[in-house]
Amino acid sequence: MNNHNLAIYELDELYNIFVEINKDINFNVEKTDQHQLSNLSLKSNTLILTKKEIPGLNNQIIFNKFPTSIFKLLEKINIEFIKKNFHEQSEILIGNYNFNINSREMFLKDNKLKLTEKEIGSIVYLFKANKPVGIQELQSEVWGYQSQVETHTVETHIYRLRKKILKVFKDDYFIISNDNGYEINKKK
């Protein structure tokens, strides 16, 4: 089942066309009315197809150029879903910090820190683990090293990452270590 939804507002004929070709499109289609618009605007997996821009409404695709090819319209809708997914997957909030995964940057108020691919990978992995993560697991999951290999790569990278975070954000406790491994301090 597809998890993308297209809500069509005041375009009844277009809704009927989408219902007719439903098996050939990769999103769900629903008709909506004015009362449902604000609730649909808040749903992260929904785009709203309208004739004209509705102020204060998120996730709109304005469709006001007639006639048009159905294939061009489908392409535009699919591109908007891709953009939406890209944006939603690129930003995460960890404690007081914002992370942009795509640009590999960490933000707190007006301070910004550029991270390497492995640094952002380590932070995201530790955050998603929700528990202390051992060195061997980080070696395997973030660096792709076999656990039999004797290396201090993880310790060195975590040490350097902690120093960078301390220098820019004055935070010595973002990544904490204990007997079970490393974890993100979510108390801040």
Rank of each mutant, 00 (worst) to 15 (best):
N100A: 14
I70N: 14
Y182L: 01
I82F: 08
E20Q: 15
F63T: 09
L11C: 07
N58K: 13
E137F: 00
N130H: 04
K76F: 04
Y15A: 11
L14D: 07
F127Q: 07
L49Q: 01
F81Y: 10
I61Q: 03
I165A: 15
Q60W: 02
L166D: 11
N2K: 08
I175S: 06
N85W: 10
Y173A: 12
I8W: 01
I17L: 15
I184N: 01
F99W: 14
E137H: 06
K186V: 08
K84L: 05
Y173L: 11
K186Q: 05
Q89Y: 14
I184C: 00
V19T: 14
E13V: 12
F18W: 02
N3V: 03
F63W: 08
N3F: 02
H35I: 14
Y182D: 05
F99Y: 15
K114V: 00
D12I: 05
L40S: 07
K163E: 13
Y182E: 00
S41H: 03
M106F: 03
I62Y: 10
I54N: 01
S103G: 10
I25T: 03
N98C: 13
K188W: 07
Q139H: 09
E30N: 14
I61M: 06
L11Y: 04
D33F: 04
I123Q: 08
Y97V: 15
K84H: 10
